[in-house]
């Protein structure tokens, strides 16, 4: 009898391991996608670095960017990356309410970041410094805009996840998706470190 119970336990454990392996494989697959996304960003960074001085009589980065403004953007995104990690931790502890709260905070901070970025773009375009102006501005809008597009998709994904968790709770499938979302969000913050340094800080120093 006790052997039977032990066998049942082994079978259950086996199933658990199998499930967690499958889920890990899926998350690893998503990691591979993120790494290939790096190639896209690397190309855009290369283009930007080549064209950064081709202002064609237009404004340079130092004249255009306001550092305190960019710092606020950066802090909003960095904090959202942190709260996204907290949301994942709460989800792994199966605290539904806590997860939803942290996910909400992450969403709000991400939306703040996106709003600030769009306001900045709008200001530049209305001043006549749009992507038509110079090679520098074309590459700037492409690089930062591509990052912004990723953020937009991440926010949409986050909203859908929020509704999903609210309606169906925290099953293994939801947890797997949440792990992927958090990878995506942290990855975007990592890309932003380089945008902040190479585009804005180097720009302020007239590279």
């Amino acid at each position: 009898m006790s052997e039977l119970v032990a066998d049942a336990k082994v079978v259950q454990l086996n199933k658990q391991i199998e499930r967690s392996e499958k889920s890990s494989t899926a998350v690893f697959g998503f990691w591979v996608y993120l790494m290939t996304d790096c190639v896209l960003f690397a190309s855009l960074f290369a283009v930007f670095s080549v064209l950064r001085n081709n202002t064609y009589g237009g404004p340079s980065g130092a004249q255009l960017f306001s550092l305190p403004y960019v710092l606020i953007e950066t802090l909003a995104l960095l904090s959202s990356s942190f709260t996204c990690g907290l949301a994942l931790l709460s989800a792994q502890r199966r605290h539904k309410k806590q997860t939803l709260i942290w996910l909400g905070v992450t969403f709000a901070l991400g939306l703040t970041f996106l709003g600030l970025e769009i306001a900045e773009f709008h200001k530049f375009v209305t001043m006549g410094d749009s992507w038509h102006r110079s090679g520098f501005l074309s590459s700037y809008f492409t690089l930062v805009g591509t990052h912004g597009a990723h953020i937009t998709i991440g926010l949409l994904w986050m909203a859908v996840m929020g509704v999903f968790i609210y309606k169906r709770g925290l099953g293994p499938l939801t947890l797997k998706r949440l792990r992927m979302l958090s990878l995506f969000w942290h990855f975007l913050d990592v890309v932003w470190i380089f945008i902040f340094t190479i585009v804005y800080l180097f720009g302020a120093l007239h590279v």
Partner: peptide, 11 residues
């Protein structure tokens, strides 16, 4: 490695 080759090489 790919990123270093891509960006460094282009520059």
């Amino acid at each position: 490695l790919v990123v270093i080759i891509l960006v460094g090489g282009s520059l």
